[in-house]
């Protein structure tokens, strides 16, 4: 489903953020991308979304060679991915419902489909009662749920999350993780960059550790550090 083969990324300023990264993620997996700040986690995510282009190696996602994507093809490629960020990225002048339906309008869904799917995903993230509210009227956790609803409303094969709990208190973070885990259980592949140790340790999922642009560890049912319990 996702294959990185000896991928490197040198930014325009000459900084080498990734130095030969390889991993393979199967359909339906739940993978944590961990590592300290500036390790290169977000860079990996940006390469997956083709927000940045790799300077070496190959990236295959859903049988698509991401390096070879032409500018015109990128939007259609991105529709197969759902993305969630640390800072939610909601449109402040649109209601919860509009923030979600907007993602469907963009891909040209009919208004009938929009009327059917939006309430469905809003209930999936537990926000049915707040559909008419604006982002500033919601708590951080609720805003992140809107972002998740927007990410999954078009049924992406892969959900990519970059530090989705980074701005949330631990309790809210757990609620968000429960929602993401639920999405994964329904068959969506999840890749989540984080440095939230407790979450990683508690969930016992596959862990890929990045340090200074190199993968230093890749283990199933791993923990954040080498020591697995306490």
């Amino acid at each position: 489903m996702i294959t990185f083969e000896n991928v490197s990324k040198i930014y325009d300023n000459g900084y080498g953020a990734l130095k030969g990264v390889s991993f393979h993620i199967n359909k339906g997996e739940f993978v944590f991308l961990v590592g300290s700040s500036a390790a290169g986690k977000s860079t990996i995510i940006k390469l997956m979304m083709k927000e940045e282009s790799a300077t070496g190696g190959s990236i295959i996602i859903n049988d698509i060679d991401v390096n070879d994507l032409r500018h015109k093809e990128i939007p259609y490629f991105r529709r197969t991915l759902g993305v969630v960020f640390q800072d939610f990225r909601l449109l402040p002048n649109k209601t919860v419902q509009e923030n979600v339906s907007f993602a469907m309008e963009i891909v040209g869904a009919s208004s009938k489909e929009i009327r059917r799917n939006v309430p469905l995903v809003l209930s999936q993230v537990g926000l049915s009662s707040k559909a008419k509210m604006y982002p500033h009227q919601l708590s951080g956790g609720e805003q992140q749920r809107v972002a998740i609803a927007r990410a999954i409303v078009n049924n992406p094969a892969i959900l990519i999350a970059d530090e989705p709990t980074g701005n949330l208190d631990p309790e809210t973070a757990l609620e968000i993780m429960a929602i993401i885990e639920e999405i994964n259980k329904r068959g969506t592949t999840v890749v989540m960059a984080t440095h939230a140790e407790k979450i990683v340790n508690d969930m016992k999922k596959r862990v890929i550790m990045v340090e200074k642009g190199i993968i230093t560890r890749d283990e199933n049912e791993g923990g954040y550090g080498y020591v697995q319990s306490n």
Partner: peptide, 13 residues
């Protein structure tokens, strides 16, 4: 900001 979000969600140019 809105343009940026649209790009992430897969809006065409």
């Amino acid at each position: 900001k809105e343009i940026n979000i649209m790009k992430y969600v897969g809006a065409t140019d």
